[in-house]
Design a protein around this nucleic acid. Structure first.
Lengths: 126, 126
DNA sequence: CGTCTTCTCAACCAAGTGGTTGACAACCGA
DNA sequence: TCGGTTGTCAACCACTTGGTTGAGAAGACG
């Protein structure tokens, strides 16, 4: 019942996927080279199944893809999805910075005016 | 190579906070202007308490801060935290792109060699 | 063929998340 | 001081999440 029906979009999945340190680490290592599930899981001291699940989350978010090589499933980083996040972040950061600039301008103007007029009207005593 | 336990750092909290569309929307609107809890919650058709919780999550992640104005608690965006994400993303994206460049080089070289030598060694027949 | 390797699927569990309602603190305004 | 506004805290609930174990599919290989 949300008035604004925002569906669970890819952006949510991407952020959610990267909210886990283990998955971030996996992504980091995939920037160096593709790797199998076993290789990726080796450092973490969790079951292979758990690693497989992590990779599935990354895959659902579009951050990685899996191919086939005999029994092996090499995992490959899909770096383009990073752009999705970058765009979102940059958009609102720019907007925020713009706002701060405006705020600074307003504050500067208020300062000017208070220096010029020096007088408030009625009740503004603490 | 981190065989060791990665603690739940701020980066995780930031990604996690932004994994929710409602919270992303709140952040987006805070780039326009500070707002009270009631104002922020108005569009969403959820209880005020739920909105308060969302804001707490954003606050724990360092994305917003709350001040006091009588009963009101104006929420303010702390845009610097965006840099944390941007840095992480850019770092690994750059690394990934670098890797793809190297991969291209390797593939080009393999292509050269196969054109020159034209021969694999033993068993590579399907 | 049988066996080992690599990985996924299914069922289960504890902890976390997002929502609810109810109580109430803090403050303004009459 | 009393009532209305604004927001938080606490308890509760359904659902998700990250982990587990067990079973087994799919290949390589002797």
């Amino acid at each position: 019942m949300s008035a604004v029906p925002v569906p669970d979009d890819q952006l949510s999945k991407v952020f959610s996927a990267l909210a886990d340190p283990t998955r971030r680490d996996i992504v980091a290592r995939l920037t160096v080279a593709d790797a199998t599930v076993g290789e990726l899981g080796a450092p973490y001291d969790v079951s292979l199944q758990a690693v497989s699940k992590h990779i599935k989350v990354l895959e659902d978010a579009g951050l990685v893809s899996r191919s086939k090589d005999a029994q092996r499933r090499p995992v490959h980083l899909e770096a383009e999805v990073f752009d999705l996040m970058t765009k979102w972040i940059e958009r609102y950061r720019r907007q925020a910075e713009e706002r701060y600039r405006r705020l600074d301008a307003v504050l500067a103007q208020m300062d000017d005016e208070s220096a010029a007029k020096q007088r408030g009207s009625a009740s503004d005593r603490p």
